[in-house]
Amino acid sequence: MGVVFERPKSLTQQKFHYCPGCHHGIIHRLVAEVLDELGLQDRTIAIASVGCSVFAYDYFDVDAIQAAHGRAPAVATGVKRSRPESIVFTYQGDGDLASIGAAEIIHAAARGENITVIFVNNAIYGMTGGQMAPTTLVGQETTTSPQGRNPKNAGYPIRMSEMLATLPGASYIARTSVHDPKHVRETKKAIKEAFQVQVEGKGFSLVEVLSACPTNWHMTPVESLEWIKNEMIAYYPLGKFKSAEEAK
């Protein structure tokens, strides 16, 4: 018998610290599989951000940098500009990318930085204990929107992919989900395309992955899958918003 599925080489043996059913582990694995398949492990530099995925530098078996909250795209810019031959990716959550780091992501995309961004959108601040995020859905209860997000007070959730796709500098923008095996495969395909865009020097690529936070959503991991499918995708439609061919 031959192995059809095993742990990718671009992951270390470190056990993930994530809660049961958290999708960070799936997305980490997909990124690592893509790095393996494209033969990029030795030339890759990962930029971890602040949030639950802060320890990403321990999980990816590649050179890595831990960045300040929201600043990963700026750090990645500094890395890529000084080492254009390296493959550089950031791994950021929704608080990091869509709130405190909104300026950095927009300008990295606008400059067409030849980097790849993995954007994990779980509509909540996980690490700090379930507060409202820039991507929290209207009506969604969090510890800082206990009656549900009220747009009159808290405004509306931001569709980052659609917004970034309007920028001429952005070459590849896709939103995917990992709520079932089919969508996991599609996410991997998108991540692979995004890295290929960088390898070919075609500019800024970003994959937004809709992801579950069962602990702070107060759901079981299996219930969380349904919530992504029924609630999140309704507001955050899946798809490719920009491909390298139609860029510029």
Partner: peptide, 24 residues
């Protein structure tokens, strides 16, 4: 070399952080 005008001082210092990380 590379001259890059950042979107803010915050971004600029973090670009420095990135480039310094590579030993530049």
């Amino acid at each position: 070399g590379v001259y890059l005008q950042a979107e803010s001082e915050v971004a600029a210092i973090n670009m420095v952080y990135g480039a310094a990380s590579t030993g530049a």
